Amino acid sequence: MTSPRLVWQPMRHCKSSSSILAQQTQQPTRFLSSTASASQAAASSNPPNTNNNTNTSQPNPNPHPNPAAPKPKKPLTPAQQAFLSSALRVNQAGELAATLIYTAQTPPVVAREPHLRPLMRHMYEQEAGHLSTFNALIAKHRVRPTALYPVWSALATGLGWTTGALGREAAMACTEAVETEIGGHYNAQIRRLLEMVGEWEAEGYEVGGELRELIGTLRRIRDEELEHLDHAVEHDAKKAEPYWLLTGVIRAGCRGAIWVSERV
């Protein structure tokens, strides 16, 4: 089947060359391919014996299955397809927001404290790499991006500029709050995927390489996000005033954005 035409493009600042689809198809995502069971494959490869002289009561000379035979692959259920689609959609939106926050924060922060330029560049470049990864995945698996891209772009830019203008402590408090929520969000996704893998392996199914690769990608990105959290704490995030109000509002906003982006 020919894939739908790509009619949606990421924002111009996204460095991915992959086009993004405007709508999700009804085809299963391609983390696993639907295959016949091992017994069906064996039946199709061995036609029935038409010799009437064959003694059908003769015992099977090889009653045990071949342990070296490939395991069947289990197709995704509709609920699993929906989970993977929402995960990629919200991850892409979150990484877009992160790049915009750092883009807006960096000029006012670096103007006051030039020694932070390498750190701000390092965190931005990692976020840009995360965004490129999810741009590619969302196009490959034909997942519809969030319809609220323009809204999240405006809010992320405003948040970055405001906290950057308030100073280093506020900017770092923003990073701490965002990465706390994002780190927990990635952990939840990883746990869900590992549960799926465990269930399939217990049932005797093969787990596709793409799914294992996705789990590895999420773990790597989560660790880099938590590294940003550590950097923020080291650079006086908790000295922001008022710390509890600033971080509380930002964390609540992140949770709301995640919930909406998973669905819209």
Rank of each mutant, 00 (worst) to 15 (best):
S3T: 11
P4N: 01
L6S: 11
W8V: 11
W8C: 15
P10V: 05
M11H: 08
R12K: 11
C14T: 10
S17L: 10
S18Q: 13
I20T: 13
I20N: 09
L21C: 11
A22F: 10
Q23N: 10
T25G: 15
P28C: 06
F31S: 03
S34N: 14
A38W: 05
S39A: 15
A41R: 15
A42L: 15
N46H: 09
N49P: 00
T50K: 13
T50C: 03
T56S: 04
T56Y: 03
S57A: 12
Q58T: 14
Q58Y: 06
P59D: 04
N60G: 01
N62G: 00
H64L: 12
P65I: 08
P70L: 02
P72C: 01
K73Q: 10
L76N: 12
P78F: 01
R89M: 06
A93C: 05
L96P: 01
T99S: 04
L100E: 14
L100D: 12
Q105A: 14
T106R: 13
P108Y: 08
V109A: 03
R112D: 13
E113F: 04
H115Q: 15
H115I: 15
L116N: 08
R117Y: 05
P118I: 14
L119D: 11
L119C: 06
M120F: 15
R121N: 14
H122F: 11
M123A: 08
M123C: 07
Y124N: 09
E125D: 11
G129T: 13
H130C: 09
T133Q: 09
L137S: 00
L137W: 07
R142D: 11
R144S: 11
R144Q: 15
L148G: 00
A154I: 12
L155A: 08
L155W: 06
T157M: 02
L159W: 08
W161P: 01
W161N: 04
T162L: 15
T163C: 12
V178N: 08
T180H: 04
G184I: 09
N187V: 01
Q189R: 09
Q189C: 03
R191F: 09
R192Q: 15
R192W: 10
L194Y: 03
A202N: 01
G208D: 06
L211D: 04
E213A: 13
E213M: 04
E213K: 04
E213L: 03
I215N: 02
G216A: 15
L218N: 07
R219L: 15
R219D: 12
I221K: 01
D223M: 04
D223C: 02
E224G: 12
E224K: 12
L226I: 09
L226C: 07
L226D: 03
E227M: 12
E227Y: 14
V233C: 03
V233S: 03
A237L: 02
A240N: 00
E241S: 09
W244F: 13
R251H: 03
C254N: 02
A257C: 05
W259S: 01
W259L: 11
R263S: 00
V264R: 06
